[in-house]
Design a binder for these strands. Structure first.
Lengths: 183, 183
DNA sequence: TTGCTAAACGGAGAATGACTCCGTATACTG
DNA sequence: CAGTATACGGAGTCATTCTCCGTTTAGCAA
């Protein structure tokens, strides 16, 4: 990539990170272009769709998600506690920016989406956590990771749209967890 | 109201019902105006916000919801079965038009919304169903009707956005129900 | 019937946001 | 340093929301 193109690319991603934090993931793309001091054309050339831009913005997620899942797999705290903390991390991650839960939970069922591979990281991390507890026989076996991601994503969507606090969200997650546990 | 105004009002509601069914609850309002053969000004005078129009379109819901809740309260089938059928009805009702689950579940937490009172009908119907099972001691007591509506609404949102079929939706509802049951 | 007036109409157009097209500018290469 | 592929950028189109205000008309009273 040409040097000026690389510079613009980086500036746009940095600006998008900022604007998404301020206004959510549905923020006007033209505003991002303006604040990054590039024309709309430049933004759209680098990122044909909003999701391409989101994909670039969330690059850093993977390590953090993997770490949280790793902790959940190894932790020897009670299953309910471990799952609550893992799901809370999951929700926090996709809810970092307003509008996030809806975007990610939709993309998870759409292999064509530019952020599908990121969603797969989420789903697979969740699968490792669930597998651990399936082996231990403490959670039901008749429901797969994708379905669990959808339910948790649903809770995150409501919390995001309604502006619910973490306590209320945790309470809802508690119901879902009890529905997953066999004990 | 003047006769011509009443006629336009009725035409707009009928057209909106049609267009919402075809294109979902986020359909362009100007299209509704055009197809109802009125100017945008007329539509917006009768219905200042999209939600005012939605409110008029869903007038007929109440009776059906009340009936389903009534059945759930009186049914002597197993709790799990009754709840599944009640929640499925709940989801079907708010999902009749694309975009519905999001609108209703948001409005439920916003007393200023023009459709808040309709949402209250939903929430109260759900409360009566839950109360029956609380009395019987088969569901947990530490979670109120609003929170349950939010969880079910979350499931409905995901199903709506992702285009999930009833079977998958029912499976997710099953998890939530198991999380509510104490048995 | 006619004339008056409050009520209602409707469409032009402003505001916002997504997205494109293409003439211009410039980074690299030889 | 000249040539060219690469990239830029902003004017402009399209879609959608929503308003303003000049025009029309329903309903009523004389």
């Amino acid at each position: 990539m040409r040097a000026d193109a690389q510079k613009n690319y980086d500036t746009i991603v940095a600006t998008a990170t900022l604007v998404f934090t301020e206004k959510g993931m549905d923020a006007p793309l033209d505003e991002i272009a303006t604040r990054a001091d590039v024309g709309p054309g430049t933004l759209y050339r680098h990122f044909p769709t909003r999701e391409d831009l989101i994909d670039a913005v969330i690059k850093s997620w993977i390590a953090q998600i993997e770490a949280a899942a790793h902790d959940a797999v190894l932790s020897d705290s009670p299953a309910r506690e471990v799952l609550l903390s893992w799901f809370a991390e999951y929700v926090a991650r996709i809810s970092r920016n307003k509008g996030g839960p809806s975007k990610f939970t939709s993309a998870m069922s759409n292999p064509q989406s530019p952020i599908f591979s990121k969603c797969e990281v989420l789903r697979e991390a969740n699968e490792r956590v669930l597998d651990r507890f399936r082996v231990e026989g403490v959670i039901r076996a008749d429901i797969d990771s994708l379905e669990v991601c959808r339910i948790i994503g649903g809770v995150a969507m409501v919390a995001d749209q309604t502006g619910l606090d973490e306590l209320t969200t945790a309470s809802m997650l508690g119901v879902v967890i009890d529905g997953l546990l066999t004990t």
